[in-house]
Design a protein around this nucleic acid. Sequence first.
RNA 1: CGGGGAGUGGCGCAGUCCGGUAGCGCACGCGCUUUGGGAGCGCGGGGUCGCAGGUUCAAAUCCUGUCUCCCCGACCA
Length: 416
Amino acid sequence: MRLSQLFTKTSKTIPADETARNAQLLIQAGFIHKEMAGVYSYLPLGKRVLDNIEQIVREEMNALGGIEVQLSILQPKDIWEKTDRWDDDKVDNWFKTKLKNGTELGISLTNEEPLTNALGGFINSYKDLPAYVYQIHSKFRNELRAKSGLMRGREFLMKDLYSFCRTQEEHNAFYENAALAYMKVYDRLGIGDTTYRTYASGGIFSKFSDEFQTLSDVGEDTIYVHEDKRVAVNKEVFTDEVLSDLGFKREELIEKRAVEVGNIFSLGTKYADALNVYYTDEQGERQSIIMGCYGLGISRLMGLLAEHFADDKGLVWPEAVAPAKVYLVRLGDDEATVKQADELYNRLTAAGVGVLYDDRDLRAGAKFADADLTGIPYRVVISDKTRVAGVYELKARGSEDSQQLNQAELLKTLDV
RNA sequence: CGGGGAGUGGCGCAGUCCGGUAGCGCACGCGCUUUGGGAGCGCGGGGUCGCAGGUUCAAAUCCUGUCUCCCCGACCA
């Protein structure tokens, strides 16, 4: 992408109506636009980051055996009444709307009922199970108060997967595999070493659910980390009884602040039963389906990564999610220099390397400042001077030092 | 939802207490100079002060209502 063609622009000042560092940085760098409290639009660079995170999640869900769908955002009321969840007393942060004729509708905040209902038409036999179905789509929650930028919005992008199993054993095995897949996602995003599988309240179907909590001072959750076992306990279930169940001693655990970046639940048979979705086993007997749900916040992760990897100059994206791998700075406008920069841009682009090509008519300082703020992993400078010297200047975003390389060395360093 | 703070060109702010029809920086346009860490000088365009009502000869400024944003708390299937 040529920056001369990009409509967004960076700002020298941070927005006054945000205090969350992630939102400040992402708005200042032109990645997102705030529509209203808790609602953000994704501009070109932000959209790329979001897509990159989404793709990593998609790959791991596919590897887990998941099959992707896209569910509707408008939802009918009747299926939620069957599971007794429609009432505002049951779910109080639900956006709802109405058809012109007065028919009430729900706006997607979760999808157990719609998906189970949709699957019900196809699931008859034990041969049709298990089924692991997911989507990556917007969710809406009418939070009393939005906060923390992308980390807690009213509209957000989330991956939600639902498992439909025949037996508890089958469910348990998948549930554990899902937990492993989640950790793979966090590893790929560069936060694996600070993310803990965390015991949390399980609701009515199991003693615990599992949250995935990434350590962060701006996190909303308090967890107690067991470093040796690489697990944690959420404060909400941090009781002597639970510690005893888990075989942990209180003094082994360290209190930390964390951001919930995933949560997986066992759901039992409640929803499928309520929606009259069963399967017939090998003996011809009708059996209940055991469900699980597995959430992972894509946009929240973007906020977390923005905040987690930033420094005083701006964003510092991990290469896996960066909107581009290379920020190519062209200085000087000698015809030969322009030609050389154009050629490198074309070559890298053809090789599949994402490049933000700063071909704008700006001074060096402005371009360097933008390169830093934008957080692209590698900065390459081509100037009249480097051209004459026959070198390319390469600097990693996280490093203070730059190096002078010939073209072969540069391409090798960039894995081209 | 309770408490606190704030809404003034695209962005960041001053002006509000002590009413007299709006100012600075950034950004933007033009010109000259400059050109490796957010350039300098000059000229120029752009806002009716969140919205509605009221007081007054006169309201960004005072009064009433309302909307929005931020923070703390509560809430978070």
